[in-house]
């Protein structure tokens, strides 16, 4: 017995592909003073790595953010900038 189910049945988990934040070469940074809580960054994030709080303020989950930069590109008030990822 190998202890596996009869066929490959996977169960849901955050980070199923690991800490995908490690893929990042550029990092989005939110300037909260400019944020208007429009939630577009949260809406458009393909990864679901923009955390939306109860009050609709947002935060980047750097554990999983892959740094695609869509959030910065779509932000209507340019509250998100993309900076080079350091070591």
């Amino acid at each position: 017995m190998s202890g596996l189910p009869v066929t490959a049945i996977a169960t849901p988990r955050r980070g199923a592909a690991g800490r995908t934040g490690l893929w990042r070469v550029e990092r989005p940074v939110i300037d909260h003073s400019r944020c208007i809580k429009c939630l577009l960054c949260w809406l458009y994030c393909p990864e679901g790595a923009v955390v939306r709080h109860e009050d609709n303020s947002v935060e980047i989950d750097y554990d999983y953010c892959k740094g695609c930069g869509i959030c910065a590109n779509e932000c209507p008030v340019r509250a998100i900038t993309v900076v080079a990822e350091r070591e």
């Binding site: 690991g18 949260w42 989950d61 892959k66 695609c68 930069g69």
Partner: peptide, 21 residues
């Protein structure tokens, strides 16, 4: 946007490419 659930059903940390539609 605001009425969309905050719940995520496709969890972060998956193996899609950056910027994947």
């Amino acid at each position: 946007i605001k009425e969309l659930t905050r719940e995520e059903y496709w969890l972060p940390g998956n193996s899609s490419c950056p910027g994947c539609p």
